[in-house]
Design a protein around this nucleic acid. Structure first.
Lengths: 341, 341
DNA sequence: TTAACTTTGATAGACGCCTATCAGGAATTG
DNA sequence: CAATTCCTGATAGGCGTCTATCAAAGTTAA
């Protein structure tokens, strides 16, 4: 039961350790037939290189950078904290993680940031705006050999090697199904509030939501989308207006941040109980609102998972190791009052 | 930016590597003041021992055993596959995992299995029946220095060091909330089917479900629990009977396995659309039923997560490393048609 | 057949830490 | 004060792999 080492393989193949190492790491020319002997021995003994020893010997270090939006969006703050937590934990694994905050909503700024960090890092994870300028910056990084993972919001047309985030159109569809089922056979209007219609995640959620609403629950009518820029005060204003304009409003789906504004508006109108309200992202605020019944469902993406997954992917890309796909799928969490973590 | 090694610490503290090592690993007596000097140097340099090197040097191997139920329950089969997948992946990390299938529903058999494996393993993960005999067996393992993690179903009164699974009473409450909200203001009866009322997870789900139903949705009446032993043919029989007896049945919550039986019974009665059906565990079967609308909601626990979490916990226990609690929390997944993975 | 090249063997040293041993210095005891 | 006991230093060897170098075969070309 002892460990199979490279030496055992050499012995089994009747070759030297040096030769085995040469085929394992493609270091120098080896005759094909010799390589075959090595491979046979490896299979026979079921040899698996000791990754601990390998990484120790190579002294390999990973340098990654996470680029997140600055500002006071609770979810993004949590994401930043997860990055920091991961960074300190990974030091003992020889992984160094830096965190940069930028105005990701401004394509030029974001692109400039990405352009400037190419040479220092082995990999970059970024919450990216889907904009030609940003796409170019991402492609530039990739071409310089830096692997890029998009986080939370994707840029599918770029050459990024992975997207660590939820499927946002599924999230929108999920919200619609729950909204429709919760409302049952009631009739009325449903409002949709989005942060910004230039962020891909919000667009996709809206798309998914409307798709299912139109097909499955045609008796509910959707109001025109309101844009909130993820600022709770603005959210409150537009929500209050919507409530005033539509006494028959029975559902609200908030695609972005700023839950606080909706809660306040609903409370001011005294209509918390009449309106089914579905929010995104579990924060202190949405949590409290869910517990007290103002929010009915929270659709969430787990920031910790996303960060850890991004790191795993970046590591795998860095040393060309295959991914375990199933492990990197970020699920859409649904929270009702009873399954809060 | 080079790595801080134990040598740097020794230099900084004006001591020898040997002494620093003594402090780090509590190998021999060291004067308190000397220890303080070492600790100060460690803090100053922010020294973090290289885990790779440490594990390589110690030549430490972990030997774990997973004890799962035999039989053809889809979820348990998936769990077994996850164990196997993990086992082969972890070889390169010096972790050896064995898998044993037992009749976990028979306390004596399960206890005997647990009793017999004590000396070979550093840790055991077990899907355990909550029974005095089993509890004793678990405690016996713990006393012999084997850490034990309960998987999927807990034995809280035992000395197990961790439970890797979902909070089942929360799961039950979640099912009730969704059932109540989906049914809206309809009136009628709700049936509850359990696999076995001696498995703790089923008991807790039932408890949670009934609790919320009684308090939040008193207009819905719950039928007496039916026991199915997780066998789909039996499930079908009792469901068919229930449908025949109660024409006003509008909801079914199946706490255990055997979704297939319910689907068949509903189809035979032609009442798929009239009955809101909430099932547990995402399998090929429940998945298909969810897509075609027979099942309305699936409550799931992620087998892969549970297995990986159990392994991490066992490793942490084996070398007395602290756990990252948040990472080991197993969430209750809710699936509707739109957020299937 | 000799020269030139290709393929393999043997081996040393490194990576950072652990374990063990021995010797010398310090502190304690009587 | 000497005789213990207690702390500390120095150092060697190992964990499994990687990297590099040099020598010894083996192969091909001239």
């Amino acid at each position: 039961m002892a460990r199979v080492t490279i030496e055992d393989v050499a012995l089994e193949a009747g070759l030297s350790v040096a030769t085995v190492d040469r085929v394992l790491n493609g270091r120098a020319a080896v005759r094909p037939q010799t390589a075959l002997r090595v491979e046979k021995a490896i299979r026979l003994l079921n040899y698996q290189p000791d990754r601990l020893a390998a990484r120790l010997a190579k002294g390999q270090e990973y340098r990654f950078c996470f680029v997140l939006p600055e500002g006071n969006n609770s979810f993004m703050i949590e994401l930043g904290e997860e990055v920091r937590a991961n960074a300190s934990r990974m030091v003992s694994e020889r992984v160094h993680i830096d965190l940069r905050l930028t105005d990701v909503f401004d394509a030029a700024t974001l692109a400039a940031t990405l352009d400037s960090i190419g040479d220092i890092y082995d990999g970059v994870a970024v919450v990216a705006l889907d904009h030609p300028r940003v796409r170019e910056a991402i492609n530039g990084l990739v071409e310089r050999g830096v692997s890029v993972v998009t986080l939370v919001s994707d840029v599918p047309s770029s050459k990024r090697s992975h997207y660590a985030g939820i499927d946002n159109s599924s999230a929108g569809r999920t919200a619609a199904t729950l909204m429709g089922r919760y409302l049952g056979n009631k009739n009325g209007k449903v409002g949709l509030i989005a942060g910004s219609l230039s962020l891909r995640d919000h667009i996709e959620r809206r798309f998914g939501f409307e798709q299912v609403m139109l097909h499955e629950f045609p008796h509910l009518s959707i109001l025109p989308v309101l844009e909130s820029r993820d600022d709770w005060q603005r959210v409150e204003k537009v929500t209050a207006q919507m409530l005033a304009d539509h006494p028959d409003l029975i559902g609200i789906y908030n695609v972005g941040a700023g839950a606080r504004g909706i809660v306040t508006a609903l409370e001011n109108a005294g209509r918390q109980k009449q309106v089914t309200y579905i929010a995104h992202e579990l924060t202190d605020y949405t949590r409290r609102a869910l517990v007290d019944g103002t929010v009915d469902v929270i659709i969430n993406q787990n920031a910790g998972h996303e960060v850890r997954s991004a790191v795993r992917v970046l590591m795998a890309k860095a040393d060309r190791t295959p991914l375990i796909e199933a492990m990197e799928h970020i699920r859409i969490d649904i929270f009702v009052r009873d399954n809060l973590p």
